[in-house]
Write a protein that binds this DNA or RNA. Structure first.
Lengths: 125, 125
DNA sequence: AAAACACATGAATAATTGTTCATACGATAA
DNA sequence: TTATCGTATGAACAATTATTCATGTGTTTT
């Protein structure tokens, strides 16, 4: 009975298909890339941030306008804009007292469109 | 000084650009769609699940093999496969004692590819 | 100068969530 | 049948996180 372990890592069960595991293991992207990808999707995994991004698809907006649009406090929006900013998804420019936020990535729309394809496909059954 | 509120929702700041807010408001997708989209991305927002999906890009796999590949317990993998399954992202087939999981959505790859575009673009600066 | 406004931010709280542990289920083997 | 194996799952725990509240910063206005 085989008791192989891959990468000397702890695992409480046997490897059933060693060939498959080895082949897939070689094809896996770098750990760091996968981590970064998960971090990016984590940013998209919140309704408020999704709404902010959709709003910014249409127009650059200041914090107060976004807060009014979404019916949320200025503080909550500001906190979320910070998350979006550190993820490199939005940028801002200051004009007097007002700070205008806009999208800083032209690929986000594509990601969301593909996401909708999945959602809509799911509901056809 | 204007004190408008949109949609009769509470918001602790003034609407500065009423025209922009109204125009963007009309263009926003349905609340439910945005919620579903966030839920989908939430599933992608975990390194373990990202790894599982990448593994399944290459080959269908049983639970033990995935656990060995990722160096994690069978229980942890099984819990995550449950999440992926209820999101409509993976399907399974049973053969005796062994359960084989495989991808159930051909669009996921596109979403991830676009995600990588963002990540790689970000690191060029 | 002080007051008002737009926005940012630290701390606290509540809610969500990933993993572990123990155990149960379903199928095969002895 | 009993034992074993592959998998599923509920409960518990730790860690993360979204919002609120209070307050601070920077800019304009009076």
């Amino acid at each position: 009975m085989k008791k192989d372990r891959l990468n000397a890592e702890f695992c409480n069960c046997n490897v059933i298909h060693e060939d498959v595991v080895n082949r897939v293991s070689e094809k896996m992207p770098e750990e760091e890339k996968l981590y970064d990808l998960a971090e990016l999707f984590k940013v998209f995994g919140d309704t408020t941030r999704i709404k902010i991004i959709y709003a910014l698809f249409e127009s650059e907006m200041c914090v107060c306008d976004i807060a009014a649009l979404l019916g949320m406090t200025q503080s909550a929006i500001s906190h979320q804009l910070r998350v979006l900013k550190s993820a490199g998804l939005v940028k801002y420019k200051r004009e007097g007292k007002i700070v205008y936020y806009s999208l800083d990535d032209e690929h986000v729309k594509n990601i969301f469109d593909q996401g909708f394809v999945h959602i809509n496909h799911k509901y056809m059954y």
